[in-house]
């Protein structure tokens, strides 16, 4: 009993699993993510869930999706890969499946999975960064997932680390994910190969390719694991950016554990060690404060499924407890309005 379904909606695949209260996945179902169709994506999600519901007594469904998920845990405000804008995904799926549905940001879901059952199961304060094509972030404070006023907190990949740096898909420049993600790794690797560097040529031959355009992240990781100096250096650079970024995040959140997950974390120590060194070297006032521990994620690709399923079991904190004072609903300013339009004038 107490089963819930977790669904990880990726850019190409939808992965669903039936998850027990101990975080173990039983049956699974998969669908391809339909390209660029909101309706078909919602249908594929329902399909995968229905397949599992047919054979299991399921209490609730949790969906992890890339993008901004509103604090109502149902509406996707914006999804970079899925053409969703203000899409009431949770409600639509719930209407079809007739079970309670919550939608969470995918990185939040993965972070929660690691917090509840993985690398951070023994702590109450953690930061999790998911280093994949981009960088996702999830923050747990005092045992609670940080969602923010509007549901879009912990976008750690879009914290600016380089003024006027690389242009980012989020509309800003110099975001961390332009320097420490899988996409950045490939960009740097290809750039080095195209520059005619001999070290990079050697890396390409270790990868068994000749055209720099064929280079992928997993290839670089594989070459680094085989000891190729150029690939090792590329991952080292990536880790350094990551560590520097995490040092800034640690000043905000003061975590006891930092967890690094996502596809690029398959490089393990090749990434982790340089991240750790950079972190220790960049933590503000490092001599006078306790330092958090560092670890690799433990749940792999299942973190999102497990986390979404477990979050589906938990009401949002706001629904769970009464505010101590009459806390008004956060003001939602339409994007076109000046953010300070309602600001108080100085007194």
């Amino acid at each position: 009993m107490g089963l819930t379904i977790g669904i990880d909606v990726g850019g190409t695949k939808i992965a669903a699993g039936v998850v027990g209260t101990d975080g173990t996945i039983g049956a699974r179902a998969h669908r391809d993510t339909p390209a660029n169709s909101v309706d078909e994506t919602a249908r594929a999600i329902c399909d995968a869930a229905a397949e599992l519901i047919a054979d299991h007594d399921v209490e609730a469904v949790g969906i992890g999706a890339a993008g901004f998920v509103s604090s109502d845990r149902s509406t996707v405000l914006f999804a970079p890969n899925l053409a969703w804008r203000d899409e009431p995904l949770g409600r639509r799926v719930a209407d079809v499946l007739q079970v309670p549905v919550v939608v969470e940001n995918d990185a939040n879901a993965a972070a929660w999975g690691e917090f509840a059952f993985g690398a951070a199961k023994d702590v109450e304060h953690m930061i999790c960064v998911t280093v994949g094509t981009g960088i996702g972030g999830g923050v747990v404070i005092d045992g609670e997932l940080l969602r923010g006023a509007h549901g879009v907190a912990a976008e750690l990949g879009h914290m600016r680390v380089v003024p006027g740096g690389h242009r980012c898909g989020c509309g800003a420049r110099g975001c961390l994910e332009q320097y420490a993600s899988g996409r950045a790794l490939v960009r740097e690797g290809r750039a080095q190969a195209e520059s005619g560097s001999l070290a990079a040529a050697q890396m390409l031959s270790v990868c068994g390719i000749t055209d720099p355009a064929e280079l992928t992240g997993p290839m670089i990781t594989m070459a680094a694991a085989a000891g190729d100096p150029c690939a090792v250096e590329l991952l080292d650079d990536l880790g350094r950016w990551l560590g520097e970024g995490l040092a800034s995040f640690a000043t905000l959140f003061d975590p006891s554990t930092i967890v690094i997950g996502g596809g690029v974390s398959a490089a393990k120590e090749l990434l982790l060690n340089s991240a750790k060194v950079a972190f220790e070297k960049n933590l503000p006032a490092r001599a006078n404060r306790p330092h958090p521990t560092f670890g690799l994620a433990e749940l792999g690709n299942d973190a999102g499924i497990i986390g979404a399923a477990d979050l589906a079991r938990r009401p949002a904190p706001a629904q769970e407890k009464a505010a101590p004072q009459a806390a008004q609903a956060p003001e939602v300013t339409a994007p076109s309005d000046a953010p300070g339009a309602a600001a108080e004038q100085p007194q």
Partner: peptide, 25 residues
Amino acid sequence: LAPAREAFKRTLTGRGFRPEARIVR
């Protein structure tokens, strides 16, 4: 605060697709 709001608006991640915080004194 006026230049702060201006810069905030111009550098906020995902601006245009998210609610924005107020900045007050």
